[in-house]
Design a protein around this nucleic acid. Sequence first.
DNA 1: ATATTAAGCTTAAACGATTAAACTATCAAG
DNA 2: CTTGATAGTTTAATCGTTTAAGCTTAATAT
Lengths: 336, 336
Amino acid sequence: MKRKVSLKDIAQQVGVSTALVSYVLNGQEKEKRVGEEIASKIREAARALNYQPNQIAKSLKSGKTHTIGLIVADIANPFSAHIARIIEDEAKRHKYNVVFGSSDENAEKAWDLMKVLLNRQIDGFIIAPAEHAEEQVRYLQEHHIPFVLIDRYFPGLPANYVALDNYKAAYEGVEHLIQKGYKHIGMINFKSGLHHLQERTRAYHQALQDFNLPAAESWCREVNEDMLKEDMDQHLQDLLLSGQPVEALFLASNKIAIHGLKFINEHKLRVPEDVAVIGFDETDAYELFYRPVTHIRQPMAEIGRAAVQALLQLIAGNPEPTQLNLAATLVVKESC
Amino acid sequence: MKRKVSLKDIAQQVGVSTALVSYVLNGQEKEKRVGEEIASKIREAARALNYQPNQIAKSLKSGKTHTIGLIVADIANPFSAHIARIIEDEAKRHKYNVVFGSSDENAEKAWDLMKVLLNRQIDGFIIAPAEHAEEQVRYLQEHHIPFVLIDRYFPGLPANYVALDNYKAAYEGVEHLIQKGYKHIGMINFKSGLHHLQERTRAYHQALQDFNLPAAESWCREVNEDMLKEDMDQHLQDLLLSGQPVEALFLASNKIAIHGLKFINEHKLRVPEDVAVIGFDETDAYELFYRPVTHIRQPMAEIGRAAVQALLQLIAGNPEPTQLNLAATLVVKESC
DNA sequence: ATATTAAGCTTAAACGATTAAACTATCAAG
DNA sequence: CTTGATAGTTTAATCGTTTAAGCTTAATAT
């Protein structure tokens, strides 16, 4: 790589010290009263040499990198990709960059990633924490490193977060099924200690109870992320093809829903006649399924923007707590 | 943020110079013959203080950041997200990090991004170039900045790239339709000057000609990326619902295919009876459509890995040219 | 006894920028 | 003719590392 043009080169060319060059190029010529003539010579030379400041050097001096570290749960999930993009855009609006990592729902990997990003002196974090990532959160707090959690948080561990009101969102979803007249309602969720997922299950149970509907334990199933297909097939078999199939199914995430819809296709079940479906999050699949799927949509743009804004506040030294549980939207289509 | 522990702190604690600390922590104690005792004291102190080297300072010194700049065309497209993830993983295997940007198919934005990343002293680029990005490529060449193009390249502009053999891939797709007995075959592609897209159209025409099939100009349509829905609806209306509809449709990208499938759903057309479909790239949609969609799959993992490996070669100073046109796989399902 | 070598450590410059402090020249006021 | 202010510039330290070169001290060879 051709050696880059530095302040020194400009200084030499114009015949001044690097200090002057720095002042001029940072628009401090007034405060530091740099001579008109010299100033324009410097600007001229900078342009001629196509000077590009070395951000590494700048960062070393200032301790600021104007960079946000983003750790998402699984970049292969469109949810993560979408929110990453929003965060990138919002950050860019504020002249911040984003560097990325995916923890793949693995606290260990998330920890490594955090270390790597910290060594790169990022100014703060936006993190979708994995299960068992409490220690990580505490580390950040103890070291006074600005961060905002998104999508998930740990109820026992006060921290800034921007998330969904998962209980309310799920409740409304189940309520919708109930109002449509379904009585035997099943649910599939991830088996996970993550609070935001548990809230969805809690809402499901509560809604059934509030409306005095029958609730069999066997109607609420949990699948392992790492053997999703096998688990899904097993549970769907039980729920949909057994002697007493459920009439409606609440699928508590986009990945779960995708598998569910595939299963339904494969077994030529009719939606909503054989089984009504309601999904969570977004995926092309919902619109593309032969009967577009009613689903619970998260306010992605709001989450992303609020997270960036909260983080930048923190970085600026403004410790206003941000703890948002935003509302979801029920998108009614034809699947129930 | 609490001030971080530096080499100096360790040096002070142990009572030696920073040089020794640096040697020990970089495993040069043998070459630089550091005393056994001191060395272990240094390691001890480093652990006790939880020393994390400041990568910014390291980079400033070495001129290396161990970071690859990745510019994808549109991070919202699963194609980009997927390849980004593969590149990230592969880079990580080689102890490299990846910083990201999305050009949103806009050469201007790509240029800005490149400047930003360059100022951060990334060691090299992997770029999916936007249309009209030739100047950018030339800039990189002139400045001897290591880079590898992916997915697309400019035929007139020799550069390293890892891409698909789009002509062959598309030809095989159309050939498949022909062998299935379809005679009136339409195609929808993006209106774009990008070579890789044009190759798909060229293959379509050539295949029809080679097999002596009728080819009406009006069967090959082009849509604008920025008004995709409107254009698609218009053309699909013409192709599928006119007096003389086509029997089969080659949809030349995942986004185009998704819109196409939605249209087909909305208008209750039967696949493949009313219209056979073949898609390009990957999307959940293909598996999820009520009749799983035959499609042309790109070897994502190979592309990503080859690109990283080629780039690291370049960075290491090894100027072997890499110009790969990899083969696609025809994934046969039930849509034709 | 003297030179040589090796071991074990420190010094200081360098990377590229920022910035407080010092310096010089010019001019005005007392 | 001082003194002081002002404008315009340079000097040098600093951020946290790396690393060539230099410095001791002790051991070994001649």
